[in-house]
Simulated assay, not measured.
Amino acid sequence: MKQLLLIIVFAGVLISCKNSGESKKEQDGSTVSEAVESNTANQTETNYVTIDSDEALVAASLMAAPAESRDGCKVIGYNMAGEFVTLREGDNEFIVLADNPQQSGFNAACYHKSLEPFMARGRELRAEGKTGPEIFDIREEEAKSGKLDMGKPGATLHIYYGESDQYNPETHEVEGAHYRYVVYLPFATAASTGLPEKPLGSNHPWIMNPGTHKAHIMISPLFKDKNE
């Protein structure tokens, strides 16, 4: 009789565990399903479109500037017709160089206005057909002689770049774009700044072109996780 009772009790425990396990699996499966549906919904909510107007070009390019300064930035660059123009006047310390719509991907820059002589000289020499090394050498000589104004030490260039030319018209963000920063310190060296000449990590600052007119601190933040 005792053996029969033990068998009945044991069978009951097994049935209870099986039902509990099945219930947990159903709950876990439901949770996973809800998470997948939520992620899918978030992905489909983003409406990326092609930058196809000067207004969209300006809006996306302004993402290169600090958020609090975007309203007052001057915007220059190539318009959709391929002309280099002032796309928007500004009244603060920043100039935004818009993405060139004739080139693949996206690359906009925002820099302190004291850097404009240096930037403008580069555009002028490039328009004359000078190569990268030639432009470097010409500006190096002009900066050393005092002919070329290199701006305020520490003046910064903000770069917003990516492989896509699609942007979100609601947030103005370009799909998959990232930031990089360049802090100009003409003729600075590793010894004068304490920075290495090569990055110690993927997001560590370092000094590039040390000892030249184009010496600058490179800062490349880690890429933002697309799933965040």
Rank of each mutant, 00 (worst) to 15 (best):
K2E: 11
Q3W: 10
I8Y: 05
F10C: 15
G12S: 05
L14V: 13
S16Q: 07
C17F: 12
S20H: 15
S20W: 12
E22S: 08
E22Y: 08
Q27I: 10
S30A: 15
N42E: 08
Q43R: 13
E45V: 10
I51E: 01
I51Q: 02
V58I: 14
A60Y: 00
A64L: 07
A67Y: 11
C73N: 03
K74C: 11
I76G: 01
Y78G: 12
N79I: 04
M80V: 02
A81P: 13
A81T: 14
G82A: 11
G82V: 06
E83R: 09
E83F: 10
F84H: 12
V85N: 09
T86S: 15
T86K: 12
G90S: 03
F94A: 07
V96S: 07
A98R: 01
Q102P: 09
Q103L: 15
S104N: 10
F106C: 00
Y111V: 05
K113W: 11
L115A: 06
E116A: 14
E116D: 13
P117H: 00
F118M: 14
A120V: 12
G122L: 04
E124G: 01
G129M: 07
G129H: 08
K130N: 13
D137V: 06
I138N: 01
R139G: 00
E140N: 05
E140V: 00
E142D: 12
A143N: 04
K144T: 02
K144N: 03
K144F: 02
L148G: 01
M150L: 15
M150H: 05
M150V: 14
K152Y: 08
K152V: 06
G154E: 06
G154C: 12
T156N: 00
L157H: 02
I159M: 15
Y161D: 02
Y161M: 02
G162Q: 03
E163R: 04
N168M: 03
P169M: 06
E173A: 05
V174H: 03
Y179N: 02
Y179C: 02
Y181A: 04
Y184N: 05
L185G: 04
T189F: 04
E197H: 07
P199C: 05
L200C: 10
G201W: 09
S202R: 14
N203Q: 09
K214D: 08
H216D: 07
M218E: 11
I219A: 08
P221E: 04
K224D: 11
D225G: 09
D225A: 13
